Deep mutational scan, measured.
Amino acid sequence: MAAGGDHGSPDSYRSPLASRYASPEMCFVFSDRYKFRTWRQLWLWLAEAEQTLGLPITDEQIQEMKSNLENIDFKMAAEEEKRLRHDVMAHVHTFGHCCPKAAGIIHLGATSCYVGDNTDLIILRNALDLLLPKLARVISRLADFAKERASLPTLGFTHFQPAQLTTVGKRCCLWIQDLCMDLQNLKRVRDDLRFRGVKGTTGTQASFLQLFEGDDHKVEQLDKMVTEKAGFKRAFIITGQTYTRKVDIEVLSVLASLGASVHKICTDIRLLANLKEMEEPFEKQQIGSSAMPYKRNPMRSERCCSLARHLMTLVMDPLQTASVQWFERTLDDSANRRICLAEAFLTADTILNTLQNISEGLVVYPKVIERRIRQELPFMATENIIMAMVKAGGSRQDCHEKIRVLSQQAASVVKQEGGDNDLIERIQVDAYFSPIHSQLDHLLDPSSFTGRASQQVQRFLEEEVYPLLKPYESVMKVKAELCL
């Protein structure tokens, strides 16, 4: 049975990233139509530049190519590739079939990587351009969430054990800070992308030097003109047959890092959902379990974690691919890159769409948070109580021993009897502590235990987050809708 299948058929496997999760716009960027249309555009740009620099290419040939950029006979191309065992030459023939007058000058002087690699770089750039505003929107939604809850005390956790208090907004800023680093890295790697350009079979530009009869300047002009037509500021000066596969490492490393950030955020949300302090959106008709109707599973956060793990592992592909590119190139890269580049971007696209949807509907339960604080705060307040007693004339050592005994009794009630923490009640009825009984409410005010959390939130948002989001103001209103 021949390899390949009808990918629109229910009898043929289709990647869930495309069929179930990723956005239509990201799927289109990695589609065959987008790819092969870009090949034709690159052939047109090459012909236009070659004509401008004096090669015998007519206006009629150029116009014929322009008129057929979208006229792609995919069936013919597939048949040609089956016959020739070469995808680029299959599309040269297919393009030439609908451009008979231009057929002889299509791909003039070029090698397969002229269309293959340059198209990949265009796709990487455009895919990054799709991700950047999506990530900015996630940051914006979380920034709104953090600002609104900047002063809401909550129990902090280290080692997932109760620690000092923080605020809900401050905790959210930990998430935002990681995503801001990801946004900066995505922008950097996007701006650092260079075009492969017009380089020939081993990167020496020998074929173009021959076409222009040894004119170095025209060869350099050709490279520059096509690079500018493709919208790049610069091209690699040095290439082998391909652009260095280190570029793929750079791009997928940034995406993998984004995956790590999203995994951490969504894990926190899942843990908070278990504590009943916070939940992701839950639709009115949504079913959490087929057997347990009360369940409210954090399905979206779980999906993000599941896909983020996949995204983090994909960076190993370009690392290994770059390491086995012998001399000017081997074909070890080809099949692998067809999979890992598309999957990385479709996965990143999915987790950003999902995280935006989550961040637009996060639900906080202040009463649950308050109750958990009441359970733990008495123990945390013991040092403040000791200091207040010393100020009232008591002995630190005597007070410490009193607190120690009462704390152990209260802990026994919590752990052995399943009761509430009654340390404060014990202190309130103990005559030894009568000098500070009137101060206990103040000493137990949760806001006095959150330090500068709310001020940190305000400063972080104003100095770091809002300036970073400013270039994306025009796209901030787009909502994230999930079908599944």
Score class of each variant (00 low, 15 high):
Val189Pro: 07
Asn353Leu: 13
Ser140Pro: 04
Ala342Met: 07
Leu362Val: 09
Val413Gln: 15
Arg234Asn: 09
Asp422Lys: 09
Thr382Gln: 08
Ala150Pro: 03
Thr158Asn: 00
Ala260Asp: 03
Tyr21Phe: 15
Val251Phe: 10
Arg452His: 07
Ala348Cys: 13
Met312Cys: 10
Ile424Val: 15
Ala103Asp: 15
Leu482Gln: 15
Leu331Tyr: 06
Gln164Ser: 11
Val226Asn: 00
Cys173Asn: 00
Pro467Tyr: 07
Asp216Gly: 15
Leu319Tyr: 10
Ser112Tyr: 01
Lys479Arg: 14
Asp268Leu: 01
Trp326Met: 15
Leu174Ala: 14
Ala230Asp: 01
Glu417Lys: 11
Ala102Ser: 13
Pro100Leu: 08
Phe36Pro: 02
Leu131Gly: 06
Ile287Cys: 13
Gly419Val: 07
Asp248Phe: 01
Ser323Val: 03
Thr154Gly: 05
Ser447Phe: 10
Cys113Asp: 01
Ile237Met: 11
Glu250Asp: 13
Leu346Ser: 11
Arg40Lys: 06
Arg396Ile: 05
Val413Thr: 14
Gly104Trp: 09
Pro281Ala: 11
Gly419His: 12
Met278Phe: 10
Ala381Trp: 04
Phe36Met: 08
Ser253Glu: 07
Lys35Ile: 11
Ala322Cys: 13
Ile424Lys: 15
His159Gly: 02
Gly451Gln: 04
Val390Gly: 06
Trp39His: 09
Gly451Trp: 04
Cys266His: 11
Gly169Phe: 01
Pro435Tyr: 07
Leu406Tyr: 13
Glu79His: 12
Asn297Lys: 00
Tyr472His: 13
Lys295Leu: 01
Glu464Asp: 12
Phe28Arg: 08
Ala344Glu: 03
Gln164His: 05
His86Asp: 02
Ala335Gly: 14
Thr382Arg: 02
Ser301Ala: 08
Val364Glu: 02
Ile106Glu: 00
Gln184Cys: 10
Arg20Leu: 01
Lys66His: 11
Gly156Ala: 12
Gln456Ile: 08
Thr267Tyr: 04
Leu17Gln: 12
His93Ser: 15
Leu211Asn: 14
Leu124Phe: 07
Gly156Leu: 00
Lys246Gly: 03
Cys483Asp: 15
Cys340Leu: 10
Glu473Gly: 12
Tyr365Lys: 05
Asp268Gly: 10
Thr267Gln: 14
Phe30Ala: 04
Asp120Lys: 07
Ile403Asp: 02
Gly169Cys: 02
Lys218Thr: 08
Gly4Trp: 15
Arg245Asn: 03
Leu222Phe: 07
Ala411Gly: 14
Leu423Phe: 15
Ala143Gln: 04
Gly361Val: 06
Arg303Gly: 02
Pro318Gly: 09
Gln375Ser: 06
Val465Gly: 03
Gln416Asp: 15
Pro24Leu: 12
Arg141Gln: 06
Val475Glu: 10
